[in-house]
């Protein structure tokens, strides 16, 4: 709306469709890996109790594919449906990074949901998921509207 550029490649149809495909793949990965289940996440974090190391294998599989894939894709110089690769420019280890990670980690450990699995779990029709999602989206929107 505030963007005055015309014919933005990212605003045309291929980019949103590509994002839909990426979301589907990501969601399938969350379901198949078991990451969508908060009990499995909490058991990964519960090293002193009913430890389930599965999540480390999820992370391992994802990292192996992404680390190799990025090294094949990024040297191409330009994405298929956008002007450039939008890579994060920030480098400093500031209090916001560390404080934010700490708050996120506590919330993650309290319920077993991080943002991806919580959004995917909206498909399951459980009231608990909607309670968590409402609070999470309110927290996100609050930060974006008030602090940022």
């Amino acid at each position: 709306m505030t963007d005055t550029q015309t014919a933005r490649p990212a605003a045309s149809l291929p980019a949103p469709l590509a994002a839909l495909g990426a979301g589907l793949l990501f969601g399938l990965g969350l379901v198949i890996s078991g990451m969508i289940n908060p009990a499995k996440v909490l058991n990964f974090l519960d090293v002193a109790g009913s430890w389930d190391p599965s999540l480390a294998f999820v992370m391992g599989g994802a990292l192996a594919v992404t680390a190799i894939g990025y090294r094949l894709v990024l040297p191409r110089g330009k994405p298929l449906f956008a002007e450039r690769f939008a890579l994060p420019a920030a480098r400093q280890l500031d209090p916001r990074l560390i404080g934010g990670a700490a708050l996120f980690g506590i919330g993650w450990g309290l319920a077993g949901f991080c943002p991806g699995p919580a959004l995917s779990a909206a498909a399951l029709g459980m009231a608990e998921v909607y309670i968590f999602l409402a609070a999470m989206l309110a927290g996100m929107a609050g930060w974006r509207w008030i602090v940022k």
């Binding site: 990212a10 291929p14 980019a15 590509a18 994002a19 495909g21 990426a22 979301g23 793949l25 990501f26 399938l28 990965g29 969350l30 379901v31 198949i32 890996s33 078991g34 990451m35 289940n37 009990a39 499995k40 909490l42 058991n43 519960d46 109790g49 009913s50 389930d52 190391p53 599965s54 999540l55 480390a56 294998f57 999820v58 992370m59 391992g60 599989g61 994802a62 990292l63 192996a64 594919v65 992404t66 894939g69 990025y70 094949l72 894709v73 990024l74 191409r76 330009k78 994405p79 298929l80 449906f81 956008a82 002007e83 450039r84 690769f85 939008a86």
Partner: peptide, 30 residues
């Protein structure tokens, strides 16, 4: 505490799909 079984194979397969999604979103939309 609900005990969950250790599922390394489905974890790796699901993780790889998440990785594919990340690579595709970078390749397509940057």
């Amino acid at each position: 505490d609900a005990v969950t079984p250790f599922t390394p194979v489905s974890a790796l397969v699901g993780g790889a799909l998440i990785g594919l999604s990340a690579v595709w979103l970078m390749a397509a939309n940057g």
